[in-house]
Simulated assay, not measured.
Amino acid sequence: MEATPVPAGAGLGLKPQHFDAALSCAAPGLWFEVHPENYMMDGGPRLAWLEAVRGRHPIALHGVSLSLAGPDAPDAAHLQRLARLAARIEPVLVSEHLAWSRADGRYFPDLLPVPRTGETLARLAANIARTQDVLKRRIALENPSHYLHMDCHAWSEPEFLGELVRRTGCGLLVDVNNVHVSAANLGIDAAAYLAQLPADAIEEIHLAGHSRDHNLPGLLVDSHDAAVAPSVWALYRTLVARIGPRPTLIERDGNVPAFDELLAERDTAQDILAASRQVQEECAS
């Protein structure tokens, strides 16, 4: 299987119910992203399904369980399984989260926050380096969603992410919905946050929907169960205008609609990327 160039267009999170539609879709620039944890086996129908889609479209791997910010090093057996899957699928991008989910042999079903301190920075840098050494490739780190103030931060998040890029050579996956949710919950400026991120390090962008907490109506939740909100589209346009077109993914994990509805949302991102590319070409001519 030959390596596929990094896609310049917009993609979709790949869902089992959309297998036939994904396999047959011929939309230009379309690619798909999956959680590797669902495919880290040696065979079987699920892996065969992924390989079939990979034969038609580029695939990216978006991990949720390496616990890079946790107190323990990434699980060695897990990393080896991830490396075998990456060698088999040859993903165009591999990404993980600025979060933790494992400690003292216990696993937690969530992506938990960490204080942005020098100690956390050193631990994250070491774990990212271990992961990149095993995978023999650069990974991208995703910014988290925030719901509560933490008083122990020594760095702003854009500064923290920029320092991780400098120390490890990793890339960034910018989840614009996460930025919007965090800004609303913590009272920060989402546009200013995005403006501080190092443009050259941004390898991928995520777009998703959010919801309001029923018990705390003022709290936004990164629920991935709705269409991308107009406010998130506005932030995305501003970001792409600054950094240029980057691979962009539409995420939907709850209330998943028909494939054509997701594809239409993806086409909105594709149009924004195409317009940005045209501006770049006009400026270069």
Rank of each mutant, 00 (worst) to 15 (best):
R138K: 15
H210L: 12
Q196T: 11
A69E: 01
A264D: 12
D267M: 13
W233H: 00
V179Q: 01
G13C: 05
L121A: 12
W100G: 01
A192Q: 13
D104R: 15
L14V: 01
N38S: 12
P45I: 11
R123M: 10
A258W: 10
E33N: 11
H57L: 07
P7I: 09
E265F: 08
A69C: 14
G209E: 01
D213G: 03
S95Y: 04
D104I: 01
R277K: 12
A87I: 06
G254K: 06
G118Y: 02
V181H: 02
P247E: 07
E51S: 11
A208N: 07
D104M: 13
A3F: 12
T238W: 06
V256W: 00
G55M: 07
M40S: 09
R56Y: 09
L124N: 04
Q278W: 12
T131E: 02
A52Y: 05
L197N: 00
C283L: 15
I89T: 05
V174H: 04
R246Q: 07
A264R: 13
Q280P: 00
V179H: 00
V221G: 00
A69H: 02
L85Q: 02
L121C: 11
A76H: 08
S285M: 11
L220H: 06
P245K: 08
H206I: 04
S231H: 11
V256Y: 04
A86R: 11
I188A: 11
D222S: 06
R130A: 15
Q280W: 11
P36F: 07
R266T: 05
R88I: 08
E33W: 03
L66P: 00
V179G: 00
H78S: 13
A3H: 14
D253G: 08
G162W: 00
A284T: 12
L14N: 01
Y193G: 05
Q270H: 13
N177Y: 02
A274G: 13
P257S: 07
A192I: 09
W100K: 03
T248R: 03
L172N: 00
C283K: 15
L30K: 02
L249Y: 02
M150F: 14
A183Q: 00
V34E: 07
A274P: 01
C25F: 05
A60F: 03
H210I: 08
L111A: 04
L68A: 03
T117H: 08
L186T: 10
A229R: 13
R106P: 00
P91F: 04
H97K: 03
A21N: 03
A83V: 08
